[in-house]
Design a protein around this nucleic acid. Structure first.
Length: 117
DNA sequence: GACATGACGACCA
DNA sequence: TTGGTCGCCATGT
C-alpha cells in the first residue's frame, strides 16, 4: 500500500485534520495551515487541498478557511457565492463584502490550538 | 511526458 | 498605496 499517491494523500489528510480543529466562530488562513504543516510556501497546495476537501470524508469545515486578508477566496467552491458567508455568519463570524470582519480578532492560529489573544 | 491551471503568499516597481 | 510579477507544488488534460 505505500504508494507515492499515498504520500500526497497524507498531505491533504493533514490539512483536513487541522481544519477540523478550527473552533466555531473562528477562521484561519491558508498560509497559517501550510506553515503549521511545515510546508510553508506551499500555501497553494493548502488551497488545492481545500478544493478537494469538498469530496473528503468526513467533510471539512473549509468555510472557516480564508486567505491571509480574511477574504472568502473560495466561496465559489461551496456551490453558492453566498453559502460560505452564510455558514460563517451562522457561526457568529460576520462577513461583509466577502471579507471577514475583525479578521485579526477572529483569526485562529493552528499552532496555538486554542490559545487566543 | 509536457503544458496549463489554481480556495495563496510575498516581494518589487 | 496600489498594481503587477514570481515562486510553490500538486492536479488535470
Amino acid at each position: 500500500m505505500a504508494s507515492e499517491t499515498d504520500k500526497t494523500a497524507n498531505f491533504f489528510e493533514q490539512v483536513y485534520q487541522l481544519v477540523r480543529q478550527i473552533p466555531e466562530g473562528r477562521v484561519t488562513s491558508y498560509g497559517a495551515i501550510a506553515r503549521a504543516l511545515g510546508t510553508a510556501g506551499s500555501s497553494r497546495m493548502v488551497g488545492y487541498a481545500m478544493r478537494a476537501a469538498s469530496r473528503a470524508n468526513p467533510p471539512v469545515p473549509a468555510h472557516r478557511v480564508v486567505n491571509r486578508v480574511g477574504l472568502l477566496s473560495g466561496k465559489r467552491a461551496f456551490g453558492g457565492p453566498t453559502l460560505m458567508q452564510q455558514l460563517l455568519a451562522n457561526e457568529g463570524v460576520m462577513v461583509i463584502d466577502d471579507q471577514v470582519v475583525d479578521f485579526d480578532r477572529t483569526f485562529w492560529d493552528p499552532q496555538s490550538l486554542g490559545d487566543d489573544e
